[in-house]
Amino acid sequence: MDSTFFLFFELAAFLIFFYSIERDSWQGLLVFLSFALFLSLSIASYDITYTNVFLNQTSGEIVKSTVSTYDVVISIINEGMALISLSIGIIKGLLYKTYMASVSEE
């Protein structure tokens, strides 16, 4: 995965996570979307590619360098955030289910 897309999806996952943990309505269940993003990003972090483009001053040609990295720390952080998102999602799902049951009784 390209590093720009990786950072975009990482930012999206964190924004969705923080948005959904503060909501008590059905938007709180969006935490499962952040769970899916964090889980897929933990798998994608094993192959992050960085592309550098340089101009060779002597010959005037453009040199493109692509480097693929393997980062275990980012993978572990994303796996941890996925587990946190899953546990919060299960709790919010159970609370939302009991809330909807109490609303339907009235």
Rank of each mutant, 00 (worst) to 15 (best):
1 M>A: 01
1 M>Y: 06
1 M>D: 02
3 S>Q: 11
3 S>N: 12
8 F>P: 01
10 E>Q: 05
10 E>T: 06
11 L>K: 15
13 A>H: 11
13 A>L: 10
13 A>S: 14
13 A>Y: 07
14 F>R: 03
15 L>S: 10
18 F>H: 02
18 F>S: 07
19 Y>N: 10
20 S>D: 03
21 I>C: 07
25 S>Y: 11
29 L>R: 01
30 L>K: 06
31 V>E: 01
34 S>D: 04
36 A>Y: 14
37 L>S: 02
37 L>Q: 03
38 F>T: 00
42 S>W: 08
42 S>T: 04
43 I>A: 13
44 A>N: 11
45 S>I: 00
45 S>M: 06
47 D>V: 04
51 T>R: 13
53 V>W: 01
53 V>N: 04
54 F>Q: 02
54 F>T: 01
55 L>E: 03
58 T>I: 02
59 S>I: 06
60 G>A: 05
61 E>F: 15
62 I>M: 14
62 I>S: 11
64 K>Y: 13
64 K>D: 10
65 S>Y: 15
67 V>S: 15
67 V>G: 12
68 S>M: 08
69 T>Y: 14
70 Y>S: 13
70 Y>P: 04
70 Y>L: 10
71 D>E: 15
72 V>A: 11
72 V>M: 12
73 V>R: 14
74 I>W: 13
75 S>P: 01
75 S>E: 05
75 S>M: 12
76 I>R: 13
77 I>Q: 11
77 I>R: 14
77 I>C: 10
78 N>C: 11
78 N>K: 10
79 E>H: 10
79 E>P: 04
81 M>P: 01
82 A>H: 09
85 S>R: 07
88 I>Q: 00
89 G>W: 08
90 I>S: 03
90 I>R: 06
91 I>F: 11
91 I>Q: 05
92 K>H: 08
92 K>T: 04
93 G>C: 00
93 G>A: 03
95 L>G: 09
100 M>G: 01
101 A>N: 04
101 A>G: 00
102 S>G: 04
102 S>H: 05
103 V>R: 15
103 V>M: 15
104 S>I: 02
106 E>H: 05
106 E>T: 07
